[in-house]
């Protein structure tokens, strides 16, 4: 695990992104790239899934893609 990682995959970080604008799972994964967090692909998927289940964000379809967002 690199000590220099500057991006942390946390519930608070995800919440802040989803308050700002609706995002797809792919959008979120781009924000928490493995090379920046030091997590493996599998860890990233598992942690992000747990966070999204806890946050239980609103969902809407934009351009036929499911987007998550949180009302402020």
């Amino acid at each position: 695990t690199p000590s220099s990682s500057d991006v942390h995959l946390t519930e608070e970080a995800v919440r802040r992104y989803l308050i700002r604008k609706p995002m797809t799972t792919k959008d979120l994964l781009k924000k928490f790239q493995t090379k920046r967090t030091g997590l493996s692909s599998e860890q990233t998927v598992n942690v992000l899934a747990q966070i999204l289940k806890r946050l239980n964000p609103e969902r809407k379809s934009i351009a036929d893609k499911m987007h998550f967002y949180i009302k402020q």
Binding site: T25, K26, V45, N46, L52, M66
Partner: peptide, 20 residues
């Protein structure tokens, strides 16, 4: 790579499928 990102997104979508 973008293909790895696609795989991760697919895995995450699948993980959330029951939930969604």
């Amino acid at each position: 790579s973008s293909s790895e990102a696609d795989e991760m997104a697919a895995a995450l979508d699948a993980e959330l499928n029951d939930f969604i």
